[in-house]
Design a protein around this nucleic acid. Structure first.
Lengths: 246, 246
DNA sequence: GGAATAGTGTCTCTGAGACAGTATAGT
DNA sequence: ACTATACTGTCTCAGAGACACTATTCC
């Protein structure tokens, strides 16, 4: 942190940087993990897809800037807590100038319809699979692929140690709905009985409402409805099951 | 990320920031976790203790800046990988101007004697206990207490999921020496037999050398010597034991 | 009744922690 | 012999996963 030892502040003593924020908004739709992207209206990378974000104002906290930019570009407000993913500041990541971007993660249930605003031509949810991984078909602007990758990794970790999975479903919810969130992110089917037992054994994860949901169109026994509990962390954590060798 | 949609680059369109890096260097000495601090030579916070760090140069990667500042202020070079802890950029964290600092963590074995350089009046290892927690007696400059806290938390997490504990001991080492690292960080005694069995069951954590160490001044059976293995992650992880209710 | 989903019960295997027992050094 | 440390073996318990079974709905 320490600037030059000279007591007085010399504005020429340090190179000026631009500081921006980018936000990775993830949700689960149609049993797949999705990320919110905007189509850039201007160069550089005009017409390409990118994360919502923008410049931090003077005297504005980083997290506040992330919330503001997200609202401006996508109309999303009153989001749950933003979690910082880290700083991305390689020289050359923006072709115009030296920029350090601080990335944030927001985990939300199915979104209200997003509306493109300010610099964004369009804003839409995109399956993570189509952006990251071997079968990706959509290239992202800047180093936003790296940022999305970090966001997805953090989301997976948060699912195991915090109750954010409840943020992906409507309230109240059935344990089957909650289970499908984990199945979507882990990409494997879970045993309904074992999942139920494990979830109910974690204090403060979910609370019963005493009510029941209507069965789906295919019939089946009505499921009990739950709400998110008060826990901040899952203790013990809900780790991804490992198939037994046998 | 997206700047204003105007195609041309307008240098007046964004507020200029200073960007700095700070480094949390942690090690284990005398069975306690310690952090490297420098005494600031100049205002603000002249005479107070702070983390080594400084301004990022133009066209310099963030991590490279962290390594350079560390070398300049403490003489430390050729450190193991620096891990990013995150960005700290509250308005007002530096009384002179708007500064965003990107913090890094370095985990090292006992250090070569550190020598204060450039702006640092002194540089020395300080027990984490005397800086963070209820019985802290040393106040840090800026928001460096917050950064140190993040670094210590990350260190604890890394101990459980990566082989960095081997970076805290000399090579080759005995399993008792390795065990004392965990005991120092977790603040509790571990069962030597169970620790041994657990460590040896994690593939790639440690490799036997076939040699033995001389017993200590108190006697005892000579211990086998080991070296760090090739594993990048501990799988399964080495979690802090939970005492059995009984 | 048949199919589908929700929920319960139970078996087995694994891993962790507690702790006793053995081995080898110094004094 | 005594002590201190290193190492090995064993017991028990809790949790996880597999899976069978019951319950309740729609068709």
């Amino acid at each position: 942190m320490a600037p030059k030892p000279a007591g007085a502040y010399d504005p020429g003593a340090y190179p000026p940087f631009a500081v921006t924020v980018d936000v990775v908004v993830v949700t689960v739709v149609d049993e797949s993990l999705q990320v919110l992207l905007i189509e850039r209206g201007a160069d550089p990378f005009g017409g390409q897809w990118a994360l919502p974000g923008g410049f931090v104002h003077e005297d504005e906290a980083l997290e506040a800037a992330a919330a503001r930019e997200l609202a401006e570009e996508t109309g999303l407000e009153a989001l749950p807590a933003l979690r910082q993913l880290g700083a991305f500041g390689d020289p050359g990541r923006d072709p115009r100038m030296r920029v350090v971007s601080v990335a944030y993660l927001a985990v939300v249930p199915h979104l209200p319809p997003v509306e493109a605003g300010s610099d964004a031509r369009r804003a839409e949810l995109t399956p993570v699979r189509s952006v990251v991984g071997a079968r990706a078909r959509r290239r992202l602007a800047f180093d936003h692929l790296e940022i999305v990758t970090a966001g997805v990794a953090r989301t997976r970790a948060l699912l195991e140690t915090t109750p954010i999975a409840t943020a992906f479903v409507d309230h109240p919810f059935t344990l089957s709905e909650l289970r499908r969130v984990y199945e979507a992110v882990w990409g494997r089917a879970l045993d309904p009985g074992n999942f139920r037992r494990k979830v109910l054994s974690i204090p403060g994860f979910v609370n019963p409402t005493g009510r029941q949901a209507a069965p789906g169109p295919e019939g089946g026994k009505p499921a009990d409805l739950y709400r998110a509990g008060r826990a901040i962390r899952l203790d013990p954590p809900l780790h991804q099951p490992v198939a037994r060798s046998r």
